[in-house]
Design a binder for these strands. Structure first.
Lengths: 201, 201
DNA sequence: CCTACCGATCGGTAGG
DNA sequence: CCTACCGATCGGTAGG
C-alpha cells in the first residue's frame, strides 16, 4: 500500500493550526465576527482550505468553542484540581485564571466571558455549548466551596451556590477590567480580593 | 418667516428613534456587528436616512455609547444617588441594576458589559468612551464604599477599591448568567449576595 | 430624507 | 487542499 500524499497526521495538524488561529481571532472579533476569509489568511491557506475541515461557519464555531474549552481546562481547571481540596482549590482556580490573563493566552481575554455575552441572545447549538461550559465551571466551583465548608475553612452558614456566584464575579471583573484598561494591577487586586473573601493568609 | 417643512424638532425625534434602535441592536449584535442597513430598516427609513444623522459608523457608535450611558445613569445610577448614603447606595445600585436586567431595558443585557469585552481590544475613540464610562462607574461605587466605611457600616480595614471591585464583579456575574441562562433566579441570588457581603438585613 | 450606485467582503459551492 | 465563481450584504457616496 502506498501512502497518501497528505497523511491523516498532516490533516490533523492543519486542523489544529486553523483552530489555534480561530480561538485567538474569536476573542478579538467574536464568534460571529470571525470571518472565514481572514481566518484562512491567518492560517496561510485559501478559504476552501478551511471549508475542507469545517463544512460551515457554525461547524467552525462549535469546534472553536471545544478547542477553547480544552485550553481553559488545561490552563485554569487543571492547576486547581491538583491544589489542596477546599479553599485551596478556589484560590488556585482564581490564580490560574489571572495567570491565564496575564500571559495573554488569548489576545482578547477570557474566551468564555466574551462568548457568553455575545451568544447569550443567539439561540442555537453554539450558545448551548457555551452555556454548558459555563454551567460546568460553576458546578466545579460550587463543589470546591462545598468541600471548603465541610472542612470548616468557610463558615457553616455559607451557601456554596452564593460562594460560586461571588468567585465567578471576581473572575469576570478581573477579565473585563484587565481587557479594558490593560493594567496588570487589576490581577493583583483580584488575587487580594479572593483571599480576603475566603479568609486566607 | 415660513417654517421649514421638516423642523429641527422632527430631526431630533428621528435621531432619537435611530439611537433607541441602535442601542438595542448593539446589545445583540455588538457595536461592531451593528449594520447600518439593518438599523435603517428597524428605524423605518433608508440607509442614507441614517447617514443624514451620523456621518460614519464610528460617529453612530459614539452616539450609541452616549445614549446607552444616558439610559444607564437614568435607570441604575439615579436610584442609587437618592438612596441613603453608604451601604444603602451600594445595595440600591445593585438592586437597580438587577431591575434594569429583569425588565429587559436592552434585549442583550447590560450594554457596557458587552461593549467592554467587545471594544477592549479595539483601540480608538469608541473604546476610550466605553472605558471612561466604566471608570466613572467604578469611581462612583468606590465613593459609596468610602462613605460606608466612614459611617462604620463596613469594617475600618476594608479598602474601598476592593469593595468596588467585588460589587462590580457581582453585577457582571448577574448580567452574564442572566443573559446566558435567562433565569430570573440569578437576580435574586445577586441581591442576596450583595446584602450578605455588606452585612445588611 | 430618497434612489441609485460604488468597491469590498461576506458565507458558501463547483469542480478539480 | 486549489482557483474561480455565486448572490447577498457591508460601509459609504452622488445627486437630488
Amino acid at each position: 500500500m502506498t501512502e497518501d500524499r497528505r497523511s491523516r497526521v498532516d490533516g490533523a495538524r492543519t486542523r489544529a493550526v486553523i483552530l489555534r488561529e480561530s480561538v485567538a481571532m474569536a476573542t478579538i472579533d467574536g464568534l460571529e465576527g470571525l470571518s472565514i476569509g481572514n481566518l484562512a489568511k491567518a492560517a496561510g491557506m485559501s478559504k476552501s482550505g478551511v471549508y475542507a475541515h469545517f463544512g460551515s461557519k457554525q461547524d467552525l464555531q462549535l469546534a472553536t468553542v471545544e478547542e477553547a474549552g480544552r485550553i481553559f481546562r488545561e490552563e485554569v481547571v487543571a492547576p486547581a484540581l491538583v491544589a489542596p481540596a477546599g479553599v485551596g482549590q478556589l484560590v488556585a482556580l482564581c490564580d490560574a485564571f489571572c495567570e491565564h490573563l496575564r500571559r495573554r493566552a488569548f489576545p482578547g481575554g477570557c474566551f468564555f466571558a466574551g462568548a457568553a455575552l455575545e451568544m447569550g441572545t443567539r439561540p442555537g447549538p453554539v450558545k448551548d455549548r457555551v452555556a454548558a461550559f459555563q454551567g460546568a465551571l460553576m458546578e466545579l466551583i460550587r463543589q470546591f466551596a462545598d468541600t471548603a465548608i465541610a472542612q470548616h475553612e468557610l463558615a457553616a452558614d455559607e451557601k456554596p451556590e452564593l460562594v460560586a456566584f461571588e468567585v465567578n464575579g471576581i473572575i469576570l471583573a478581573a477579565d473585563t477590567t484587565y481587557v479594558l484598561h490593560d493594567d496588570p494591577g487589576v490581577l493583583e487586586v483580584a488575587r487580594h480580593v479572593i483571599r480576603r473573601r475566603l479568609g486566607v493568609s
